[in-house]
């Protein structure tokens, strides 16, 4: 079985600022990293492949320099890496992005059956959490989102059971294969590449697929295929904080008030 991990190269957003005039992200000189959630998706894929004796293919849509992301995936042990890169893919919103990713997965599926697609829950730059479900929809597969544990896979019955992490509770759900899964960080601790694997990954081939390979209708990809557009990006004004109780004269009372408030907002639990 082939397992596909979708990984995205993102700017290190802790370092990104918004240009107030142009409303765009100031990306100059900002290093790129693998979207942190995707490192967990990749780890899930690698562990599943170990258990199921499957193969992992990592795919990423992005400019040619997104190759670094895929090289990292190779160092971590994926069997194949494909970069989806074409000027025609540029300026994509989540719909157009999932069209390209879904097309690539379909193509991979023709060569070797794809049983599971893994995505991060969301990215740290776009933050929409739409691409995973988007891919599932385009492919007509089930989607299991916010997964924090793979409970069990029944290859013969072709079913998968996972645990979803929701606010304040967990949910165990089951779906037929093939499936698209989006994972949260709690699912695992990603591995760290060994030096021999890193060195090996430098030698390995990363395939680049452009639209001559994927042959997607250009009206459904890139800027043309993106019905959403950004009208304005801005940093919201932060609401004034709230002083809770009188810490100076009644610290115990203030602490009690604070705990109650946090509890009621579900920010902490007992």
């Amino acid at each position: 079985m082939q397992i596909v991990a979708c990984i995205k190269q993102v700017p290190d957003t802790t370092q990104v600022q918004i240009d107030p005039v142009t409303n765009t992200l100031v990306r100059e000189g900002i290093p790129f990293i693998v979207n942190p959630y995707d490192t967990h998706a990749l780890e899930t894929a690698l562990r599943l492949a170990d258990d199921l004796h499957g193969r992992v293919t990592a795919i990423s849509m992005g400019p040619l320099n997104a190759e670094a992301t895929l090289r990292r995936a190779l160092a971590l042990g994926v069997d194949r890496a494909v970069l989806l890169s074409d000027r025609a893919f540029g300026g994509a919103d989540t719909l157009a992005t999932s069209n390209v990713l879904a097309a690539a997965i379909r193509r991979l599926n023709e060569e070797d059956e794809v049983g599971i697609v893994l995505c991060g829950k969301q990215t740290i730059d776009g933050d929409t959490a739409q691409v995973g479900p988007g891919i599932a929809t385009r492919l007509g597969w089930s989607q299991l989102t916010l997964v924090d544990r793979i409970v069990n896979i029944d290859l013969e019955g072709r079913r998968i059971r996972v645990r979803r992490k929701l606010e304040g509770r967990h949910e165990i759900v089951e779906a037929p294969l093939p499936v698209t899964i989006t994972v949260v960080r709690e699912i695992n601790r990603p591995r760290y590449p060994t030096v021999p694997m890193r060195l090996l990954s430098r030698e390995r081939q990363i395939e680049v697929w452009d639209n001559r390979v994927l042959k997607i209708d250009v009206r459904t990809i890139g800027l043309k295929g993106s019905p959403t557009w950004v009208s304005r990006i801005f940093s919201p004004q932060r609401d004034m904080g709230e002083l809770i109780g009188d810490g100076a004269t009644d610290p115990a009372g203030a602490a009690k008030l604070l705990v109650e408030k946090l509890l009621s907002k579900d920010l902490i639990s007992l």
Binding site: D12, P31, T194
Partner: peptide, 22 residues
């Protein structure tokens, strides 16, 4: 342990990534 087996205490994963990336 680190270079051949990637085996180290969990806390160090963040440290290594932080040092490498930032």
């Amino acid at each position: 342990l680190v270079e051949m087996k990637s085996e180290f205490p969990d806390e160090l994963l963040n440290l290594f990534e932080n040092m490498e990336q930032r």
